[in-house]
Design a binder for these strands. Structure first.
Lengths: 144, 144
DNA sequence: TATTGTTATACTCTATAACTATA
DNA sequence: TATAGTTATAGAGTATAACAATA
């Protein structure tokens, strides 16, 4: 594989990702939950109770930004805060039932938006795109 | 195709897109050009001289936001402004040579970031991802 | 000293509204 | 009156720095 060929493939992928993700961010939400809030709740759903630092490291956000939205999620009753039993510096964030319900509504809205877009494709193309989704997630999680 | 299957595929795709696009936005840039500026220059590269309203409609941004970055791009010498010959209300934006050069550097940086990520994949997987890139662009451009 | 979390602040992008100039 | 573009302003996200409390 020629390096230039690889960069050319990357360019094609980047264009598709940037354009489609812009639509997802702008138009696929319910309007009731900001992007960063849904990121926090998604993390809690996938990884269980977590500290702000753990979430910041995993999502490549800053603890400072999370600290603010965690305050708001707390006021909305979508999360619970507990002090760590053995380390008084740490705060353990847990999702409440209301938080899980709000997250489900939000994610459903985004998925239905994208599903409507995908109806333009053939079944084979949709299957290819789903496989690509797994690949994108895999390389996003990677170290580099 | 069951509707729930489609939504499930959409969920897989959404997760991959949102995670990878976050990395691209956060870490794949040179640090010398903001996201919206590169969007404006990209549009000019692909579509030639355009008015702010045309760019706003095509990229689903607000003219007000474009007006601000167009001011800054103008001060940086990356674009040129011309008044429309037959309609004094319109302003035609053209990319300067410096703008084209700055855009090339920026896009190269992003593509190399993504290319490095894609090196984790097999050649077949990279080919699949490139095909998916074209599909994502196609459904992003669609009406819905 | 180092780590965890918080508050403060600046810049960017999104979104709405108000304004000017031209058609 | 309608359209094109601008300026003003508020909310959300990213980033750096400074701080308090705990280890």
């Amino acid at each position: 594989m020629n390096d230039e060929t690889l960069v050319g493939q990357a360019r094609t992928v980047r264009r598709g990702i940037m354009r489609l993700s812009h639509h997802l961010r702008q138009r696929a939400h319910t309007g009731e939950m900001s992007g960063l809030k849904s990121f926090v709740l998604s993390h809690l759903e996938r990884h269980g109770p977590s500290t702000p630092t753990e979430m910041a490291n995993h999502t490549r956000r800053h603890v400072q930004a999370l600290s603010r939205v965690i305050n708001e999620l707390d006021e909305q009753g979508l999360i619970l805060r507990e002090t760590h039993p053995s380390d008084g510096r740490q705060v353990l964030i847990t999702m409440s039932e209301a938080g899980a319900a709000a997250l489900a509504v939000e994610m459903r809205s985004r998925d239905e938006f994208l599903a409507a877009k995908m109806e333009q494709l053939t079944p084979a193309e949709r299957g290819l795109l789903a496989l690509a989704g797994e690949l994108m997630e895999r390389i996003a999680e990677g170290e580099g």
